[in-house]
Design a protein around this nucleic acid. Structure first.
Lengths: 341, 341
DNA sequence: TTGAAAGCGTTACCAT
DNA sequence: ATGGTAACGCTTTCAA
């Protein structure tokens, strides 16, 4: 008979109403106690009873219900890309995440692999984030920015090589990388400079600006020439390139990054091209890897210069929305000279 | 006078009620039309009017309200770790994400850096995910699993070196990696085997099982001995280790992975220790990197063998909850012999 | 010090 | 074929 007590046999999850019932108070009181609401005085005895009941039932508030009632969330959305994130970006995200949490935001990374731009931005907007930080490679259009703003996002921020119309921008201008490498080579008397262009899809986002920076830097020097060198991240591709190296008439190469540099340098050495005597090689990323090569690899070292921590910037934009798009250049590059050129 | 029409000048985001008003129908009808509800017949004219109104207003449904009403979400939560994710894990996540999307789940990665286990699991539970996939390194305890289950998660799945009591497990048993390397070395007559143990925090999760697998494999051979070799990912640390190499009396080393292998091999060569003549070196990960070294690096190649795609497994567990914890071993390892040992 | 009730945006049931 | 209405879980205003 007593097998189905009125409100037991609950297979579902406990709500604040369950806590109220268990503690013998109203739902309002439960809310007051659990949110430490100071505008209302609750007796210590009641407080304890409510807390105990919540603990016993394993009560956990329902974030969706809460933000629905509140009319806003504190979710910062980070649409993910499927690009292989570099060390720099990973560190950036990790830091951003902890900093935002410290400011009481909830950071949510949302994978949008294989959605077309409209579907993707719609999916983000459904979550009603208070801010969106979109790394390079996610399909964010001015139209998408409008949709996010209209659905309540107080700040839309792009993070990558170039800004998008209408959004704030944390710009990682990859041109400074190519520029630094080429200036380094020019200073050492090199004039006929190759620039490796990875053929892997997705990397064009980074390699094209690096090349652009290289070209720009070369313009400052009369006799300098820059040549584009397509390369796949495979030994065969590097071997091919090395085999026709001498026909190219280059005295140096900026190899996109340290990994492509290692690949190419190995192939050049195997083909009998001396590094740096005949051809100087410069990578980028300043990985441990480069220091272990022989000759040690010269490399463009990158870092993010943040006047104001990005998390604070986001917080400021959220509290004070509607301003003109801000733009901050974050990427700094400096070439570390080692033995390879 | 007509500057403030009754329901215009809306600064807030449009709701389905706004769409209904604009189309001159009820909220229910809007819901029917936009969700393509087939159990109810709506005239084509009405359909078009509703769709047009939704489009004009830029209406986007509110995910929180929807899942509140529905009583459940289709969110799969992926608590993120701050560990440097390897290529294998990254590929795994990317695939999992697209596969789950195809099954109409929403995959959300949630950063829990710097939260203690209880706070973290509570934060996850507040989101009411339908499933949680926890990679190695996130603080998931049996108690936490209980909390997630009680707050509605239909499936909790761990992904990593070892299962956690009470959750389903996709096991990446790192012991097979050390085992494969050591069996490879034993087969080539090596007997006194060093195993590199990275000192970077967080890697112990992987290095300890790899060592355990190495020890286990060595037991099969009478004269074999395994020795633990602490190493930081720095040149100085490798140089130190190489300097006292001959006092260790080892004829081979399993270097944890290809990057540590490169670091150590370089230091050994600089110290005059011949590879592989005097000491054989085996890495893991089978990176391009290893093929470029001289001698070419032997390496443990890893892959994930999935009888059933993990996304389908998750879907099955969600639809059919309450079963006994499942356990699937995913990691396969096989040593690729090259020149280093 | 506490409780009743309204409302956030949706959807499903039951009338019309 | 369409509309009214209640309910999801929570917070907050107002009243007691």
């Amino acid at each position: 008979m007593s097998q189905l007590p009125e409100q037991s046999a609950r297979t579902s999850v406990p709500t604040s109403a369950d806590v109220a019932r268990a503690a013998g108070v109203s739902r309002a009181t439960v809310s007051y106690v659990l949110n430490d609401n100071t505008t209302v005085r609750i007796s210590d005895a009641t407080r304890r009873r409510v807390r105990a009941a919540a603990f016993d039932l394993g009560y956990v508030p329902h974030a969706a219900a809460r933000s629905l009632r509140a009319g806003h969330s504190r979710m910062v959305l980070l649409p993910a890309t499927r690009l292989p994130a570099g060390l720099l970006q990973r560190r950036f995200f990790t830091d951003l995440q902890s900093d935002l949490r410290r400011l009481d935001y909830t950071v949510v990374q949302y994978g949008s692999a294989g959605l077309d731009p409209d579907e993707a931005v719609r999916a983000w907007a459904e979550l009603r984030p208070v801010a969106v930080v979109a790394p390079a490679g996610v399909p964010l259009t001015p139209h998408g920015i409008g949709m996010l703003t209209r659905s309540g996002a107080k700040a839309v921020i792009t993070l990558g090589p170039q800004p998008v119309e209408g959004a704030h921008a944390l710009v990682l201008d990859q041109r400074v990388v190519g520029g630094s490498a080429v200036r380094h080579l020019l200073a050492r008397g090199r004039r006929r400079i190759g620039v490796v262009m990875p053929q892997e899809p997705g990397l064009a986002l980074f390699s094209e600006p690096r090349l652009a920076g290289a070209l720009q830097a070369a313009e400052a020097c009369a006799g300098a020439r820059v040549r584009r060198l397509p390369l796949r991240y495979e030994e065969t591709s590097a071997t091919e390139l090395a085999a026709r190296w001498r026909t190219l008439g280059l005295d140096s190469v900026f190899a996109y990054d340290d990994e492509y540099a290692m690949l190419l340098m190995r192939a050049l050495q195997d083909a009998g091209v001396e590094v740096p005597a005949e051809t100087a090689v410069v990578g980028a990323g300043d990985l441990m890897l480069g220091r272990l090569l022989r000759p040690r690899l010269s490399s463009v070292s990158m870092e993010l210069a943040t006047a104001q921590p990005p998390a604070e910037m986001i917080d400021r934009l959220v509290r004070n929305p509607g301003g003109a798009p801000e733009r901050h250049d974050l990427l700094r590059a400096r070439t570390v000279a080692r033995e390879s050129g």
